[in-house]
């Protein structure tokens, strides 16, 4: 009997670290012996760079342009510990429809029977989190993934993007789309950020999947073109990713989130602004 893969979408605002997080989860799962596919669903097509040494990989969309008869080997590369890397790709910025590109690429991968052929245990979709149109919501619609995670820092704009994604999940989940596995807090500094993200998660009816502290090890690994799992397997940061990967792989506590409306979100943010002020004041009082 064919293996049934778990399809997991990972969303997040641009630049928030979702490709880094996704790649490290993929690497950790591969290291644990699973067969993993990572699909970059971002027109920038740089999701899987650190898994495969940064060599040029033709994107699915580029191949579609050149030929109607696309083969899996033309658009994939085997990266760290056998992770199959695929980039959906997209048009040059400012032209065409990137959303349709994602839609077409995911459709083609399904047609090519990639997931069964590769006998994947996990398929991770690394998706641009500003769900600007229906195309970017394709990975969370019925029949693609059944769970989504959102990567967020404690910055308001990242939380705002996460809240928007919750709206998209709220729209599709009742008709069979993906449910939310939780929030992955990224680039976490000491102090309030963990509690802010945890508070946002609890307000919106979801949970925190894990916190990834801000660490120079991440920056260093990226500069070497590798994941933390590959570049610094013995580091504390690698263990953080391993723990996160295990949670993402096994977590079955999936929910339909309750996104905040614009006013509530604004009020919630303001209350945290006040809390941070007080925290800063008490720090400076203690220092005196």
């Amino acid at each position: 009997m064919a293996k049934t893969a778990k399809h997991i979408a990972i969303y997040g605002k641009g630049g928030i670290g979702k490709s880094t997080t996704t790649s490290n989860i993929s690497a950790a799962l591969a290291e644990a012996g699973y067969r993993v596919i990572q699909i970059g669903c971002d027109p920038k097509s740089d999701s899987t760079n650190t898994l495969r040494g940064g060599d040029y990989l033709p994107t699915v969309i580029d191949s579609l342009r050149d030929s109607a008869n696309v083969k899996l080997q033309d658009v994939s590369a085997v990266g760290f510990k056998g992770v199959l890397c695929i980039e959906a790709g997209g048009p040059v910025p400012g032209v065409g429809c990137a959303g349709r590109g994602i839609n077409a690429a995911v459709g083609l991968l399904q047609e090519l029977n990639v997931f069964e052929e590769y006998e994947a245990d996990y398929v991770l979709y690394d998706v641009l989190g500003d769900v600007v149109c229906g195309g970017f919501a394709v990975p969370i619609r019925d029949g693609i993934t059944d769970r989504a995670y959102v990567v967020s820092s404690s910055d308001f704009m990242a939380i705002y993007a996460a809240n928007n994604l919750f709206k998209a999940i709220g729209k599709y989940a009742p008709s069979g789309g993906a449910k939310l596995g939780g929030v992955i807090g990224n680039s976490i500094l000491p102090g309030y950020p963990e509690s802010l993200i945890a508070d946002f998660a609890s307000r919106t009816g979801t949970a925190v999947a894990g916190f990834v502290p801000r660490s120079p090890v991440v920056a260093q690994s990226e500069l070497y073109g590798k994941t933390v799992i590959e570049a610094s397997p013995g580091s504390e940061q690698a263990d953080v990713y391993r723990k996160l990967a295990a949670h993402v792989a096994n977590n079955e506590n999936l929910t339909i989130p309750n996104p905040l409306n614009v006013t509530d979100l604004r009020d919630w943010a303001r209350s945290w602004g006040d809390a941070i002020n007080q925290e800063a004041a008490s720090f400076s009082a203690a220092a005196r």
Partner: peptide
């Protein structure tokens, strides 16, 4: 065609 949708039809 889809090609023009994704990459633009200009």
């Amino acid at each position: 065609l889809e090609r023009q949708v994704v990459f633009g039809g200009s």
